[in-house]
Design a protein around this nucleic acid. Sequence first.
DNA 1: CGTTTTTGACCGGCGC
DNA 2: GCGCCGGTCAAAAACG
Length: 618
Amino acid sequence: MENSILGNSIKEAHTQMESKGGDEENASIDINKEDKLISAKVEMGEVREENGKLKLLLTKLVKDYQSLQMHFFDILQQDQLAGANINEATTDQKDPIHEKNEEELAELVSLCLGRSTFKGDQPNKDVDDEKKDISTSKSDQKKKDKNFDEGLSLGLDIRYEPAGSLTTEATNLPSPASSFEEVKEEEPCEIWPPSKVLRTMRTRDNSNNNEVSQQSQMKKARVSIRARCDTPMMIDGCQWRKYGQKIAKGNPCPRAYYRCTVSPTCPVRKQVQRCVEDLSILVTTYEGTHNHPLPISATAMASTTCAAASMLQSGSSTSQPGLDRISSTAPISGASTTTIASNYNFHGLNNFSSTHQNPIVHPQFYFPNSSISTSNSHPTITLDLTAPPRISQNFGRFSNPTTSRHYPTTSLNFSSANSSPLQLPLVPQSPNPHNTTGYFNYGTVPNYNRNQSNGGKQPFFDQPNSYNYMNDQMMPNSQQSLTAETLAAATKAITANPKFQTALAAALTNFVGNGANGGGGGGGVRENQVAGADNSALCLKYGDSDRQKSSYTKNTPPYTTSSQNGIRCAPSYLIKKSNSSLSNGQQEGNLVLFPPLPSPASKSGSASPTDKNNHVLK
DNA sequence: CGTTTTTGACCGGCGC
DNA sequence: GCGCCGGTCAAAAACG
């Protein structure tokens, strides 16, 4: 393109020189033309040189990617062999569907939304480091993989833990039978406001002064997720208990306060509130870090918030390569904010897909058109799953008093946009409960079976006094589902995207490198040890007959429907689909991305935090 | 009867 | 210092 333009200008110069060549008065003009010609040639040379450099760079990137991929697959295969031996010793069950799907895995894509392996000032390891890490002992690698598989932490902080904690924890993995038994481990560093710290110290024995001091420094970092959801509360896999409800200023919808009840000492809180401007939007704000193993079903949301928090922390307190292109923007609410001019490449993303047996790579996730706040004492990062990217940069449109009162918000947009990598167009389709391919079900609406999921009760949105947003305006057909074809095409497009590949390479860097770091700073790895997660499957999909037929034991995170308040909304974008039995240890690498349902608010904004029909992944 | 939700009271931070 | 506001507590109520 540029070359052709330059060529035309050269030809033009030649033509002009020929037509005016004999005139002495035009001699000076000819000289000028000649200068132009020379400069154009020089410019052409520069462009060619630049093109050459870019080609070299591209070649290098592709080469690095392929090299890393080969290393990664080798490790996976080694693990697969080892795992197969173990499986043979423990169980003879083998899911034929998995066998079949393993052949297709090369075509599948798994999105990882964050591993809680923050490294603080060392977010990204270079390729050399990664290769070193790859060459670490096989046992270490197994530990790493196990940690990857066994759950994630909702990390809102950057933890600096001594190397070796991972090893210690990894050797003390609870047995599968005690998957969700509380693991007595030291409290991780948590972001906790002073008042909460004091209160926590009063009521909880295992608080630590040093940790408190650390927590005090890490002030309330929050991750707020906006999603269209017709249920009182998004299903994030954790157990929550409501402990309060308030009518916050500026929003007539009550704000519900929940605390995590998976572990009695878990400090994680969350707030759930409808958006006043669009009641179909549910704003869920997470705060704190789980101090217990997370069920697999909770890892999607946890890793998402973890990644977002990582981004937030990175943008506000540390300098990272990924934030090179942050640029200042107009301050919000008196606090300075920054906007990421391009896609932010998260580091330390969690791999929750428990698929180390499968040759699936885990690219990092991009939050397109995102922005990040920096200097405020109560930073909130908002992951916007509802709005187009252009809207996401409109900070002022958030009405959540939590974020609007004192603090600017960071808005990350997950919704559809053709221009952004890993964003898919919304197309009608009905989700297939038996979907076994690696679709990004982005913008899909789960096919709820009210009768089954709600225990035959009247759905909450059919109840008196409940909102009903199930109308065409709120829920256009175009957003109801995705076609399988479109999704497949989108998946291909994504995987073919050079940015995706670059992200993949970076993800591999983290994926392989984090564990070998001995868990240094990788608190998420240390604490995300859901024993037996290796044989757990994740299926948050409503209407999934497999899930409903499955028999789960108690103490399970409530990823099933609520018996009290009706169906709930799953994390809209990351739902790993597996049709395997929940106990055979075989994993699909398939990942299904669900959209939130547009719609109805709860009758009062208070959700049923825990599921009466709790099931356990075992 | 145990667990969960509801809801008014209370506390602390912040702005004026 | 006062009032507003967000957040939490805890007794009562509701639920299964």
